[in-house]
Each structure stands twice: as structure tokens, then as C-alpha cells.
């Protein structure tokens, strides 16, 4: 039981980085970006093929994965801002292109990291006395560091402009900002984080698979929405914290569903369906509340 919770927390934190990425596009830039389904795999693919084939340093590949994801975000951004392709379609196109690119990077649909040194193994070796908790501590430090950097970034001059771009683009143009460039930068940051998350998850779970990114946008949204329903704040610190909490809760629920779900006939393959249903319900609740409020008023 305790072990399940530890694993759920570890996964919640690692996937939480991807959720922070989704948060940047969906909430801050107001740009529903589907690229993430591809860039998550790109991170995992780059990390594992560099580890297995070229014997790169496990920490270094995390940075390379971030850069690769950022590049994917730039492509989506340019498709949208330079070619005028709508946000959703630009993301879909990038995602599909990435499917082929990810297969190219990996050379095969699946790479095992069982016989490779990973950050997780290094941590386990280095902090043996901590035992089971060492990985949890490491994962928590990495995720909180990413969150902290992100929160600080959104308080800088550039970060403020990025937030305002999603809030009132016309006003930001009037402030002398090239908002197209800001959108591209935001998408790069978002997909960089998603790819970083993918690279960490691959090293954590010991493999990369070309299909592992399916539904990244939905699980990311689930975390954003669950977290948002628990913490009502417009402050970036609290929004970011709430997303990590949302991700933790979501992963815990998934863990329990996989473990004990068979009682109600739940299969692992039902997971994406159930997740999407949760997101649909969560998205519907505000509209539903509004409708109810209106009805009460007219009565």
C-alpha cells in the first residue's frame, strides 16, 4: 500500500512536469496545443536512443530532450503565426510529423533501458541508505526545481509579457511586443517541459515506446483541471502548485484503478476513456453551474 503511494507520487511528479507544460499553453497562452502528444515521446525517444546507442550521460540527455521538445514547439508556433494555420490544426500536424520523427530517432518502436545506466539508477546507487525513498526525494527535488524556475520566470519582465499575450494580445502589441514571437517562445517552453517529462518517465520506467505519448494533452488537462478545482487562485505560484497536486491525485487514482479496478470490471486499456470522461465532466461543470445560476435567477 505504502509502496503504491510512493510510486503514484513519483509518477505524479514526473508527469506533473508535462502538466506544467500543458498549463503554459492551455491556461496561460490560451492555445490548446496537441503537439505535446508527440513531444512527450520525442523526449523519451531522444533520451533513450542517446543512452543506449551513444552512451550519453543520463543527466545530459534530459537537457537535450528539453531542447528537442522546444524545437517541436517552435515548429507548431511557426505553423500558427507565420503560415496562419489554426492552433488546433498546427498542433495536430506537428504531432503527426513527430510520430514519424520519433520512429526515426528510435529506429524501432520500442527501446528498453534495462541494461543502461539511468538517472534513477544513479540516484539509487548514490543514496543507498535512503532506500526506497531516494528516488522519491530525487523526483520531488527535480519537479519542484522546475516549478520554481517556472514561477520565477513568470514574474520576470519577459514572463509577464508571455502571460499578457494569452490574456489580451492586442494590448500587448500596443505595448510594443511582437506577440507572434512570444507565442512561439511559449510553445517552445511548454513542449520543452513536456519532452523533459517524457525523458524522465522513460528513464524511470525503463523504456521508451512510440505510443507512450497518446493522451498527454488529456492527462495534462486532467491535472490542470483537478488542481484548479481544489485551489482557486490567480497567482502563478498557487496555480503551478495546484497542477502538481492535481497530477499527484490523478496518478494515485490511476494506480488504484489499475490495482483494484478489476472488481468493477476495469481494464488497463479503459484508462484513456475514463480520463477523457473525467476531463469532459470537469470542463462541463463551470458551464453547468452557470446554467443553474441563471435558472435560479429567472425563477
Amino acid at each position: 500500500m505504502a509502496l503504491i503511494l510512493i510510486h503514484a507520487t513519483e509518477q505524479g511528479l514526473l508527469y506533473g512536469i508535462a502538466a506544467l507544460g500543458v498549463f503554459i499553453t492551455y491556461r496561460i497562452l490560451n492555445f490548446p496545443d496537441l503537439t505535446v502528444d508527440g513531444s512527450f515521446v520525442t523526449g523519451a525517444a531522444i533520451a533513450s536512443s542517446l543512452l543506449v546507442t551513444y552512451g550519453f550521460d543520463p543527466f545530459l540527455v534530459l537537457l537535450i530532450a528539453f531542447a528537442a521538445g522546444a524545437l517541436a514547439g517552435v515548429v507548431t508556433g511557426l505553423l500558427n503565426t507565420r503560415l496562419g494555420i489554426t492552433d488546433l490544426l498546427a498542433g495536430v500536424l506537428s504531432m503527426i510529423m513527430l510520430y514519424s520523427i520519433n520512429l526515426r530517432i528510435m529506429g524501432r518502436p520500442n527501446i528498453s533501458l534495462l541494461r543502461t545506466d539511468t538517472v534513477i539508477r544513479i540516484v539509487k546507487r548514490g543514496f543507498q541508505p535512503l532506500g526506497n525513498v531516494s528516488v522519491l526525494v530525487f523526483v520531488a527535488i527535480v519537479t519542484l526545481a522546475v516549478m520554481l524556475i517556472l514561477v520565477l520566470f513568470f514574474k520576470t519582465e519577459v514572463g509577464l509579457v508571455l502571460r499578457a499575450t494569452g490574456d489580451n494580445e492586442r494590448m500587448v502589441i500596443a505595448q510594443g511586443v511582437n506577440t507572434k514571437r512570444m507565442k512561439v517562445a511559449g510553445l517552445a517552453l511548454s513542449n520543452g517541459l513536456v519532452a523533459l517529462s517524457g525523458a524522465l518517465v522513460a528513464q524511470y520506467s525503463g523504456f521508451a515506446d512510440v505510443g507512450m505519448g497518446v493522451g498527454t494533452i488529456v492527462t495534462g488537462l486532467a491535472a490542470v483541471i483537478i488542481g484548479g478545482s481544489l485551489v482557486h487562485s490567480r497567482e502563478v505560484v498557487w496555480m503551478a502548485t495546484s497542477i502538481l497536486i492535481g497530477s499527484l491525485l490523478y496518478r494515485t487514482a490511476v494506480m488504484f484503478a489499475l490495482r483494484y479496478g478489476y472488481v468493477i470490471g476495469f481494464q488497463a486499456s479503459d484508462l484513456k476513456l475514463v480520463t477523457s470522461l473525467i476531463v469532459i465532466i470537469a470542463l462541463f461543470i463551470p458551464a453547468f453551474r452557470e446554467r443553474m445560476a441563471k435558472r435560479v435567477k429567472t425563477c
Binding site: 519582465e157 509577464l160 499578457a164 490574456d167 494590448m171 505595448q175 511586443v177 490567480r234
Partner: peptide
């Protein structure tokens, strides 16, 4: 103005036009 952002943040946006950097706003 940017509605989701605070008064202070809006003022900070306006007071800095050229060369926005990674300094705290």
C-alpha cells in the same frame, strides 16, 4: 489592460517597453 493580471503587473508591463529581460518585473 490584461484582465487576468493584477494592477501592479499591468503597470509593470507598461513601464518597460524596450529590451525586456529576465529581471524581476
Amino acid at each position: 489592460t490584461a484582465p487576468m493580471m493584477t494592477i501592479a503587473e499591468n503597470l509593470a508591463l507598461a513601464s518597460k517597453r524596450a529590451h525586456r529581460s529576465l529581471r524581476l518585473a
